[in-house]
C-alpha cells in the first residue's frame, strides 16, 4: 500500500522517514541549533557589556553597545602581535605542507617510485601515531637545535604533522587525473618538473585548497605544541596569547570575551564563505585530530 504524497515533486522523495513527521525533526533541530549557537551569541553579546552591566545583566542582550572591551583587549592583550605570529604560522604551515605533501603525493600517484605501497602505508601509520610518543624527545631535540621558542621551529613541526594526511588526500586527487596528459606533455618535450607544475598542479587545485584550509585552521587553533614550545610573550601565537590574557583577567568576562571574538572572527568569516569545502575537508581530515 502506497501512502499518498502530500507534496508533488518530480523526483520521488528519497528522504528517510518521508515528509510526514518533519515538524518533529525541525523542533529537535532548532533545540540542537540553540545549544550550539546560543553560547556563541552570548560570547558576542557579553563582549559588548561593561563590567557593571555584566553584573546586572549576565546573559541578556546589552542595553547599549560598549566597545571599550575591544579597545582594552586589543591594547593589553598582545593580540596584534599574536595575530601576526599566527599569520606567520598559518602561512608557513600551509606553504610548507603544500610543497612537501604536493611533491610526495605526486611521487606516490604518478611517478615510478620504488616501494610505493610501503611509503603509502608509512604515511598512513604515521597519521595514527599519538603525539605523545614523539613529543618528549622532540622537545629536547628542538632545544638542542635552537629551534625551541621560535616560530620556524613550530612551523616545521606543524608541516611534519600535517604532511602525511595532506599527502594521502592529495594522492586521491592526483590519481584521478588521466595519465595521457603526462604522455602528451612529454611528447611536447616537457620534463618531470614542468609536467608536475604546469600540467598537473593546476588540475589538482581543489585538493590544494582543501589542504590549505584544513592545515591553516589546525595551525591557527593548535594549543599543545604552541603552549609547550613557545614561551617568549612576543612570539606567542594568538591561541596562547589569548590564553595568557584570559588567565590574567579571570573574572573580567566582557574583556576576555572581546579578545575571544577578535580571535575567532577571521575563522568564522572564512568558514561562512567556504563552508562546503571546509566541511568536506575537515570530515576527510578527521583522522588527524
Amino acid at each position: 500500500m502506497v501512502r499518498p504524497r502530500r507534496r508533488v515533486s518530480k523526483r520521488p522523495d528519497s528522504r528517510p522517514g518521508g515528509i510526514g513527521p518533519t515538524p518533529f525533526s525541525y523542533a529537535w533541530l532548532v533545540l540542537l541549533a540553540l545549544f550550539a549557537g546560543l553560547p556563541l551569541l552570548i560570547l558576542l553579546s557579553n563582549s559588548l557589556k561593561s563590567a557593571l552591566e555584566l553584573g546586572l545583566n549576565p546573559l541578556g542582550l546589552p542595553t547599549e553597545f560598549d566597545w571599550n572591551n575591544y579597545v582594552t583587549a586589543w591594547n593589553q592583550g598582545n593580540l596584534a602581535q599574536g595575530l601576526l605570529n599566527s599569520l606567520i604560522l598559518v602561512v608557513g604551515t600551509i606553504v610548507g605542507t603544500w610543497i612537501c605533501a604536493g611533491a610526495a603525493s605526486y611521487a606516490l600517484a604518478r611517478l615510478d617510485l620504488p616501494f610505493k605501497r610501503g611509503f603509502g602505508n608509512y604515511f598512513f601509520v604515521v597519521i595514527s601515531l599519538p603525539v605523545q610518543l614523539f613529543l618528549v624527545p622532540l622537545f629536547f631535540l628542538w632545544s638542542k637545535l635552537g629551534l625551541i621558542d621560535t616560530l620556524p621551529g613550530l612551523i616545521i613541526i606543524f608541516v611534519a604533522l600535517q604532511t602525511p594526511f595532506a599527502t594521502l588526500l592529495l594522492r586521491t586527487f592526483l590519481v584521478g587525473i588521466p595519465k595521457e596528459l603526462d604522455e602528451a606533455a612529454k611528447i611536447d618535450g616537457a620534463n618531470e618538473w614542468q609536467i608536475a607544475t604546469k600540467v598537473i598542479l593546476p588540475l589538482a587545485q581543489p585538493g590544494f585548497l582543501t589542504v590549505g584550509l584544513v592545515t591553516g585552521l589546525g595551525a591557527y587553533n593548535e594549543l599543545l605544541f604552541a603552549v609547550t614550545f613557545i614561551s617568549t610573550p612576543s612570539k606567542l601565537p594568538i591561541a596562547t596569547a589569548f590564553l595568557q590574557f584570559s588567565q590574567g583577567n579571570t573574572q573580567l568576562y566582557g574583556l576576555v570575551n572581546a579578545a575571544g571574538v577578535i580571535m575567532i572572527v577571521p575563522v568564522v568569516i572564512l568558514f561562512l564563505f567556504m563552508q562546503r569545502r571546509f566541511i568536506s575537508g575537515l570530515a576527510t581530515g578527521g583522522l588527524k585530530g
Partner: peptide, 24 residues
C-alpha cells in the same frame, strides 16, 4: 543553515570555547 550552526563550535579554538563556558 543547521549544518553550519552545528559545525561552527568545531572550528573555534579550544581556548575560546573554554572561555565561553567558563563565563556561562
Amino acid at each position: 543553515f543547521f549544518r553550519v550552526v552545528f559545525f561552527i563550535p568545531y572550528l573555534i579554538a579550544s581556548v575560546v570555547n573554554a572561555q565561553i563556558w567558563k563565563n556561562l
